[in-house]
Design a protein around this nucleic acid. Structure first.
Lengths: 130, 130
DNA sequence: TTAAACACTCACATTGATGTGAAGGTCAAG
DNA sequence: CTTGACCTTCACATCAATGTGAGTGTTTAA
């Protein structure tokens, strides 16, 4: 598929798809006319990138992460450097921190909404009986 | 306390503290000489802001969120607009999405590390017996 | 064959979160 | 009274993620 379709199917602009490629997050083959050609699998990869980016990870980290997040991963196992392992462990820890922080805040919002909404419904009742 | 101490205790640069104030995330009183004065409670608020920012939320959202994340919140309940509730619900959903995405990816990293490390230890054993 | 839709590269603009530095005021200690 | 460590504002710089547009080539379909 070409860039337009990929953009449409992922919700990521053409501009950004080219940017991701420039940043080494995705690759593409080129047709004879120079157009980028993508495979089905790119859809998922782009969505994953989108998710990570949206989660606040910078592209250079994502670039390191991506090769490890593939499903049939066993092939890549042997040539992993110890530094890479350390990087991943750090990143894993950072992700956990983020998750915790986000969860805390989401729960706080939830609590707040609960309170607000219960008060509102109580008010509605008291208005009904007055 | 003054800005230097707050910076040190929160790990947020003076520059950023002023920026947060400019963005309406925190307030400060001024001493006679014009110096900013902060209270103990600012430490927690700044840490919370840091967490949210680090979690990828933009300041303008944090600004809307903050008043709702206070503990003694019941006072503020009455004057909440319906739009605000909608905003919060949206933001809550977005947070959940982020959390999901982050969790998925963290688990993928964990799986990868597990695989890598188990292979490594297997290799170590086979080297030992050869 | 021409127009519309799509692709390409290149480059400049913007936004948000930061850093950095200049020019100057305040205050405490020597 | 001076020096050093604070503080102030202001402004310019940077970086990553994006947008936007110009200028040009390609494919598609009327």
């Amino acid at each position: 598929m070409r860039i337009g379709e990929l953009a449409e199917r992922t919700g990521v602009s053409r501009r950004l798809l080219r940017y991701y490629e420039e940043q080494g997050l995705i690759t593409s083959s080129r047709a004879l006319n120079g157009y980028r050609e993508y495979k089905e699998s790119h859809v998922d990869v782009v969505l994953q990138i989108k998710g990570l980016l949206d989660a606040g990870l910078p592209t250079r980290i994502i670039q390191q992460l991506l090769p490890c997040l593939d499903k049939p991963q066993t092939i890549y196992v042997p040539n992993v450097t110890p530094e890479m392992i350390v990087t991943l462990q750090c990143e894993q820890a950072r992700l956990s921190e983020r998750i915790e922080s986000l969860t805390r805040n989401r729960d706080a919002i939830a609590d707040y909404l609960d309170t607000v909404l219960s008060v509102k419904s109580a008010n509605a009742k008291s208005r009904a009986t007055s």
